[in-house]
Design a protein around this nucleic acid. Structure first.
Length: 953
RNA sequence: GCCGACUUAGCUCAGUGGUAGAGCACUCGCUUCACACGCGAUAGGUCACAAGUUCAAAUCUUGUAGUCGGUACCA
């Protein structure tokens, strides 16, 4: 079989995914075991406008690894995929394009035409992210792909809205909201980011106080001199809002202002007279202790205004320019221009006391970074109290969902729920789920799932639907059940005939089979925005939690530990990494990071996994070059476990231990642990030791023709068929069988490479599948995942192999330190106990080969020439390599001294501990005993090394 | 302000109440017939600092410093 010397990931990545998908391997229907347990994961739907970034790649890798693992374990597995309509992002993108292509705004073409354009855009470009998901190798069920604006999901949205409205949890109200003047929509608190302002200032404005006497005078005269001799100074960071002030507030206990409460001031730049009021909210220590109150433009002021029945003057338009109410001098000015002008005017009037530098954090629009303007506006809200209690009760009573890692997310999640405020759900956009509320000509509102229902309620069809759409997260909150066919009670039948695209299977049992889902994998940043809301709506509308476990993965940082961001331009494109190192190596890198911990991206790390992939490739290549006469045979392997060589018993033990540990690691979501286990099993145990130990056995009889062109040097295909003895064939079968099991263990992490290699192994068939998939086309992804068999874990074999490895390592150390040429063969003298001698005797050929020795002399006591290099073995052994003429005595003494020193450090510590009466008395007996044994062993080794060193002189 | 996390080898990171680990980089030696994306052998750490608990602390507690997050308020 021709097989290249280095692994080219692209070949495997091109072929296998298509076949897996076309063969229906990803769909749960592939599982033919009617009793199979189900396992389901829903993807956090990426924005339809988005393209793959490292955060996706990380969470996708974890989800797919779990899915492939569970599938191989025989679960009826669903990894549900889909995308999010991403209201603001998508609308912005299409708006931009519209402007560029047609020089038109959405308003120019109207709502219907605009949304049609967005759908067009989605059709054309929305597939980018799903193509990338295929590239990643995700075993998602494309036949169940969903989009948050699919008819069935939209129906669920309307259903939920209507139900919440009918029970009073959704209401329409006028509140101070977070307004983005650029996107011209309201935002929820979670879509607002606080950032420090570059040049924050605190402006001190003097307001003239009017008393009864001055009242008449002030309006009569314009110079203000006689108006009053008193001023009250307020401090503000947003002076332009003074145009909407309707009061000045002071603390009721503030002696400075006690006599002023109840009086009024003449609000400069306006002709309004506003009261001075007292309210506990004001802190006397801050600023001047007097606060200007602008109820329509500040949330705290609004509340205070409510308490005192103040007028609420809106002085801005929705683009943050000033409106008529701000006064003729200001109308039309941008808020910042107006600010300058207000300050200028105050200066002219002598009413500007001072301006201080002041650090201030301002809310910014998460999307466009514009400074948010708190604005009085009528919006739709969800009352969160009952929903919150559902989620809190679940956490308190059942500790659910379980977070991985639990610290700090459980606490953060709980604390956030406890302080939950109402959720602003309306958005002034066209792209999204239009709010299912209709108004009649009188302005009465009718909330219903459809116009027909609303008309029925209203008794007229002269209705206008609410212009706004819902927050994108409103539909995402329903994702775990809306994607599985939930359309609300009594609505299921309607959903069946809802014009769902025919490619989508709408199985009425999906919800019952796959809900609740098993585990959610997502990032920290959407814990509140998404995770908590899914819990709340899930409990509310299905009566069940949406998932058991939540894995919160870390953030992939750039190589300097900085967050990747578009503006910094420090992002690493997963597709570039795929291209350079292969998907499997990238997946291993991502899965190899500790769960929940941020990590700095290093190409070197991927490179090492690329090398690992190549190692697997070459190990397999070697096995295939020596596979004549053999084929994978698990039964034979099991039956050999008691009779074959140490190497065989050992690798079998290592394999089964690794399998057990990998399963445990995955059960506890310790992906990095599984990656480490597999890496070391494959590279160290299998390649460095097992292959080397059995190499002679499996290559026996093979002809390696030196190839003239230097390629395909080992080629059994073109030579005469080689006679293979039964023993050789059996050894080949054993190594192939171990390899096959190892590939299965690796498959959830490295799907492409393992499929590519597995298909090449002799004797693979769908007979190796988990019984749930017995009639499917053969693929490693359907094989039974090894779980590890205790009966095949052989501690004695592992101990014995440790001795052999130690012996070989000691000899290699001598070779290397003494600069023995590789071609030079040594004879090795070993003094050891009878049982250890027997082990070495049995494995003599392998020891000779790996230590590059031609003779091994086993004795009770060493009897060697002075010109020998020596070393000690654990358990009382000693070795010597006669090096007549080759030895450098000085060097050898140094080498021995070095080893003595190292042992001595440990010995000192042991002696110290064991001479401590407290330790011997209070520490557990077995611990003390273990240290004593260790002490004796080291003392013996040190003695032996000292002796060796002395005889050199 | 409040809450939290982190600080371990040159770098990136695992880990644990009882002998400190990996990958990469470094040093030395190898074209040994699967692999130089390789093989073999070294070197490298007061586990941020201080106190406490304990027979025993890098690990638990408290404090300090630095780094990074989250969140609230800000007239």
């Amino acid at each position: 079989m021709e097989i290249s010397k280095t692994y080219d990931p692209k070949v495997a990545e091109r072929e296998h995914y298509k076949r897996w998908e076309a063969s229906g391997f990803f769909a749960p229907e592939i599982n033919q075991n009617a009793d199979a347990e189900s396992f389901s994961i829903v993807i956090p739907p990426p924005n339809v406008t988005g393209s793959l970034h490292m955060g996706h790649a990380l969470q996708h890798t974890l989800m797919d690894t779990l899915t492939r693992w569970k599938r191989m374990r025989g679960y009826r597995t669903l990894f549900l995929v889909g995308t999010d309509h991403a209201g603001i992002s998508t609308q912005l993108m299409v708006t931009k394009q519209l402007k560029k292509d047609e020089h038109k705004s959405p308003r120019d073409i109207g709502r219907e035409a605009f949304t049609a354009k967005v759908w067009e855009w989605k059709k054309k470009y929305g597939g980018e992210i799903t193509r990338q998901i295929r590239h990643e190798g995700l075993s998602v069920d494309w036949s169940r792909e969903r989009f948050t604006m699919d008819e069935s999901l939209s129906k669920a949205v309307r259903e939920v809205f209507v139900r919440l409205y009918e029970e009073g949890s959704i209401y329409r109200g006028t509140r101070i909201v977070n307004w983005c003047p650029k996107d011209k929509t309201v935002l929820s608190d979670l879509e607002v980011k606080e950032e420090k302002a570059k040049d924050g200032r605190l402006y001190y404005l003097k307001y003239p106080v009017i008393d009864a006497k001055a009242r008449t005078a002030i309006w009569a005269k314009s110079d203000g001199d006689n108006a009053s001799d008193r001023f009250i100074t307020v401090a503000t960071t947003r002076p332009e809002t003074m145009l909407g002030d309707t009061a000045v507030a002071v603390n009721p206990d503030d002696d400075r202002y006690k006599d002023l409460v109840g009086k009024t001031i003449a609000l400069p730049l306006t002709n309004r007279e506003i009261p001075i009021i007292a309210d506990e909210y004001v802190e006397s220590e801050f600023g001047t202790g007097a606060v200007k109150i602008t109820p329509a433009h500040d949330p705290n002021d609004w509340e205070l205004g409510e308490r005192h029945g103040l007028e609420k003057l809106v002085i801005m338009n929705d683009d943050a320019t000033m409106n008529e109410t701000a006064g003729p001098e200001f109308v039309g000015l941008d808020r910042y221009v107006a600010r300058e002008k207000v300050i200028e005017k105050f200066g002219e009037l002598g009413l500007l006391e001072k301006i201080d530098d002041y650090e201030v954090t301002l809310p910014h629009c998460e999307r466009c970074k514009t400074v948010i303007e708190p604005l009085l506006s009528e919006q739709w809200f969800v009352k969160m109290d009952t929903l919150r209690d559902l989620a809190l009760d679940l956490m308190r009573k059942e500790n659910s969902p379980r977070f991985f890692p639990e610290v700090p997310h459980k606490k953060v999640y709980t604390a956030w729920l406890e302080n939950l405020k109402d959720w602003t759900i309306s958005r002034q956009l066209w792209w999204g789920h239009q709010i299912p509320a209709w108004y009649d000509v009188q302005g009465n509102v009718f909330v219903a799932s459809s116009l027909d229902e609303a008309a029925e309620k209203a008794g007229t069809r002269e209705l206008t639907q609410d212009e706004d759409v819902l927050d994108t997260w409103f539909s995402s909150a329903l994702w775990p059940f809306s994607t599985l066919g939930w359309t609300g009670e009594g609505n299921r039948q309607a959903a069946e005939g809802s014009g769902q695209p025919t490619a989508n299977r709408q199985s009425p049992t999906d919800l019952s089979v796959f809900y609740p889902t098993d585990v959610l994998v997502t990032g920290r940043d959407i814990l509140f925005l998404w995770v908590s809301r899914m819990v709340m709506t899930g409990l509310k509308f299905t009566g069940q939690k949406p998932f058991d476990d939540v894995i919160i993965h870390g953030t992939v940082l750039d190589k300097n530990g900085q967050r990747m961001s578009k503006t910094k331009g420090n992002g690493i494109d997963p597709l570039d990494v795929f291209d350079k190192y292969g998907v499997d190596a990238t997946r291993m890198t991502l899965a190899g990071s500790a769960t929940g911990v941020d990590f700095a991206w290093r190409d070197e790390r991927v490179e090492s996994f690329r090398n690992f992939a190549n190692k697997i490739w070459n190990a397999t290549r070697f096995c295939l070059m020596n596979s004549e006469g053999a084929s994978i045979d698990l039964d034979a392997f099991y039956s050999f476990s008691n009779t074959t060589s140490l190497a065989d018993r050992w690798i079998l033990s290592r394999l089964n231990k690794t399998a057990k540990a990998v399963n445990y690691a995955l059960e506890t979501y310790q992906f990095h642990e599984a990656v480490q286990l597999l890496y070391h099993f494959f590279w160290d145990d299998f390649c460095d030791w097992y292959i080397e130990l059995v190499k002679d056995e499996i290559t026996a009889g093979a002809i390696y023709a030196a190839s003239p062109d230097g390629e395909g040097s080992a080629d059994t295909g073109t030579a005469e068929p080689v006679e293979v003895s039964d023993e050789t064939a059996a050894a080949r079968t054993r190594i192939l069988t171990v390899l096959e099991q190892a590939l299965r263990l690796l498959h959830p992490f490295m799907p492409f490479l393992t499929e590519e290699l597995w298909q090449k192994l002799p004797g693979v068939s769908s007979g190796m599948h988990n019984s749930a998939y017995s009639s499917a086309g053969q693929s490693i992804m359907l094989t039974d995942f090894p779980v590890g068999d205790d009966a095949l874990i052989d501690e004695q074999a592992e101990r014995e192999m440790t001795s052999v490895i130690e012996l070989i390592s000691r000899i290699r150390n001598i070779r290397s330190e003494m600069n023995i040429k590789p071609g030079e063969k040594l004879s090795v003298h070993v003094a050891a106990s009878g049982s250890v001698q027997a082990i070495f005797k049995q494995n003599e050929p392998q020891i000779l080969k790996l230590a590059r020795a031609d003779r091994i002399v086993l004795t009770e006591k060493l009897d060697v020439p002075k010109a020998s290099a020596k070393a000690v073995l654990g358990g009382g052994g000693e070795i010597a390599v006669p090096l007549e003429g080759l030895i450098d005595f000085e060097k050898e003494r140094k080498r021995l001294q070095n080893q003595i020193e190292k042992l001595d450090v440990e010995l000192q510590r042991l002696n110290g501990q064991l001479s401590n009466a407290n330790f011997v008395e209070k520490a557990p007996m077995e611990k003390v005993e273990a240290l004593r044994v260790r002490q004796a062993e080291i003392e013996r080794q040190v003695r032996a090394l000292r002796h060796s060193s002395e005889v050199l002189v």
